[in-house]
Simulated assay, not measured.
Amino acid sequence: MSDILVIGGGIIGLLTARELVQGGAAVTLVELGETGRESSWAGGGIVSPLYPWRYPDSVTALARWSQRLYPKLCADLTAETGIDPELTANGLLILDPQELEPALAWAATHGTEVQLIDSVQLHEAAPELAVRPPTAMLLPAVGNVRNPRLVKAARRALEGRIALREQEEVHAILAADGRVAGVRTSRGLIQADQVVVCTGAWTARLLDPLGQRPDIAPVRGQMLLFKGRPGQINYTTLWREHYVIPRRDGRVLVGSTLEQTGFVKEATAQGRESLQRAAVELYPHLAHTPIEAHWAGLRPGAPGGIPYIAPVPGTAGLYVNAGHYRNGIVTGPASARLVADLLLGRDPVTDPAPYALDAPRLSDGGAGASSLRSGR
């Protein structure tokens, strides 16, 4: 029997398992399908919340800690596996004029660099860009990772270090006398004295039979990938809730829609058209660039965008690390460290109180099960 059982093999589960192994625990990870193939694979990989000033300080705390760790994390994963997550610090360019005042106030509070760029400077920096507000903002330190490569590297780094069980569905969490005992899966029983649930949008379903249902629900997001050429787009660009991300090889990722469709994950023609229109408004040359792929994923939305990273009340040994909404990549390292601290009895890397299951969460701060505000 492993010391700790991790349920869910997205980036949150993989990084949680990594932190636990590095802390000396024996770990089993169970994943319904293939590791990293749900929202972790489907997202954009921006190592920042979109419009970060819209989020509570509890989300900012996780994001900033993770941002500081990312260069070392990616370097370590590359050295361990030979898979480079392609962390690229090309900056986040924001074109929405109405965001200027709150952005500058947030930046002053948190000590974040924001550069103001006039339309002439913007043309020089991004000549392909068609949208030129009088003043744009650049967060120069913001990078992005190629998230499919990140999850591949995280999985590869765990091979031989944990018991990895893919294509195995967890049907129920087992408890006795107020304590977790393990899980019942499609292949039988797995005993465990400590279990951490990292199942994203599916978390509420799994915990509901125990009388603890976190306010997490799926929010569909569709993505579009253009097969461009290197150097055509210089910055990750954000405008009117849509973003354009240039990859090192010239591919351009465009996202994303926000749709409350339950667990329906299919991509739609309407979603494709809206993303293509947004991309071409920003960068007209994309109208003549082949579209390579179009897909959808299910984000784990939670009120205020605040994840649940905490013990589950009433069931000793049971923990949850889920509900990261659009910010699983950027907050993943800190979330994994925090839940590992709680499981292993270490001093927590940040105050865990805001992430408790019964902690107050803003109803309008971020998208979640009970509230969806445009752009969050």
Rank of each mutant, 00 (worst) to 15 (best):
D3F: 01
G8Q: 07
G9E: 10
L15E: 07
Q22T: 01
G24T: 09
T28Y: 05
T28G: 06
V47D: 03
L50W: 01
V59S: 02
R64T: 05
W65M: 11
W65G: 05
A75E: 10
T81A: 06
P85F: 02
E86N: 03
N90I: 02
L92V: 04
I94N: 01
L100K: 10
L100V: 14
E101S: 04
P102H: 02
T109A: 13
V114F: 06
L116M: 13
D118K: 06
V120H: 07
V131Y: 10
P133H: 08
L138Y: 10
L139I: 14
G143I: 09
G143S: 11
V145G: 05
P148A: 03
A153R: 04
A154W: 11
A163K: 12
A163Y: 05
L174E: 15
R179G: 09
V183R: 09
R187Y: 10
G188C: 09
G188H: 08
W202K: 00
A204F: 06
L206W: 07
P209G: 11
P209H: 13
L210C: 09
D215K: 14
V219P: 00
F226L: 05
G231F: 06
H242I: 00
S256P: 02
K265H: 11
E266C: 02
R272V: 05
Q276E: 09
H285P: 01
A293H: 15
R299M: 14
I309T: 04
I309V: 15
V312I: 15
P313T: 13
G314M: 13
G317H: 12
N321A: 15
S335P: 02
A340K: 06
L342I: 14
D347S: 15
P348L: 14
Y355G: 01
A359V: 08
S371A: 15
L372C: 13
